[in-house]
């Protein structure tokens, strides 16, 4: 697959990232917001790997590895938070969660 330029991957990554951002901004379900975040992380990973290939540097892939680990940790804590919030409020609608309103 050497004939596909890196720029294409970057563009694809940008589209996926934007879709993730839209998910965060448009959906009210906390779980879907969370999944959108995962989508954004994943699109960033794609760029990392693409440039690693472009420059022949494995460091990019190592970073992807770390991003995945951190994402795993984030998912564990984030889901725990969602479960706890659901217990307390019987809802995971982020629009119901506005105790920090000034």
């Amino acid at each position: 697959m050497q004939s596909v330029p890196t720029v294409y991957y970057v563009a694809l990554s940008a589209i996926l990232f934007t879709l993730g951002v839209l998910g965060v901004l448009l959906r009210r379900n906390a779980l879907i917001i969370f999944m959108s975040i995962e989508l954004m992380l994943n699109s960033a990973n794609l760029v990392f790997v693409a440039f690693a290939r472009e420059f022949g540097q494995q460091a990019g892939q190592v970073f992807v590895f770390f991003v995945m680990t951190v994402a795993a940790a984030e998912v564990a804590v984030g889901l725990a938070l969602i479960v706890t919030i659901f217990r307390a409020k019987r809802s995971i609608n982020v629009d119901d969660i506005n105790q920090l309103k000034g």
Partner: peptide, 13 residues
């Protein structure tokens, strides 16, 4: 200013 602080995360995002 407090009008801006709605408490909605998505708004901030």
């Amino acid at each position: 200013f407090r009008r801006f602080q709605t408490g909605y995360v998505r708004y901030y995002a």
